[in-house]
Amino acid sequence: MAGLNIEDVLFYAFGAGTVLSAVLVVFFANPIYSALFLALAMSMLGALFFVLEAYFISVAQITVYAGAVMVLFVMVLMLFDLKNEGEDILKVSPLGLIKLLAVGLLCGFFIGTGWVASKIPGKVISETSMASDQQTAINKDVQPVDIGSTVSLSRQLFSKYVFAFEAVSILLLVAIVGSVALARSKGGTHHVSR
């Protein structure tokens, strides 16, 4: 079975696509192109999850980020029709120096992470959270292959992680109420006339 494994081909293709579109987000001067490439990067990430057989995470990723969050971004950007930020990154000013420093720091961070990761034996990564979750799974009928299915996911969510799950939902509720309150307060987008 030494033949070319199409899973690997797709994984690396989508991985390269994700990285490339993420890089293009930064390099485009036009904010609309940046936003569109960010949406593409999100979709590619969804495709990566799909190749890894985590179907639910994959479609949730696409719905939430590419289908909802980024659509609003793109919509607002198109409505305002921002002009190109054709500013040279090496313009001689203190700001340019800070930019250059930031880029250097980021590059150093990437190289450092890569160097640290290469020191760790490969096995450690594959044996972390997933495997231990399987061993402590409450339902014994959950097969290891089943880890990406919605059944095992929801069983974990509503048993082991139920507190975190509910805490996050309260956090989201607070955020929603807060944003409505901010929008309706004086000086917001709407005047409270009623």
Binding site: A39, G46, F56, I62, T63, G67
Partner: peptide, 25 residues
């Protein structure tokens, strides 16, 4: 035959907005 078929359809359908937005802009 995706085990989350219905969610997949909603997810992909939600991407249709980009075509319309790009066309309009």
């Amino acid at each position: 035959d995706i085990n989350v078929g219905i969610v997949y359809i909603f997810a992909v359908a939600s991407l249709g907005v980009y075509g319309i937005l790009s066309a309009g802009w």
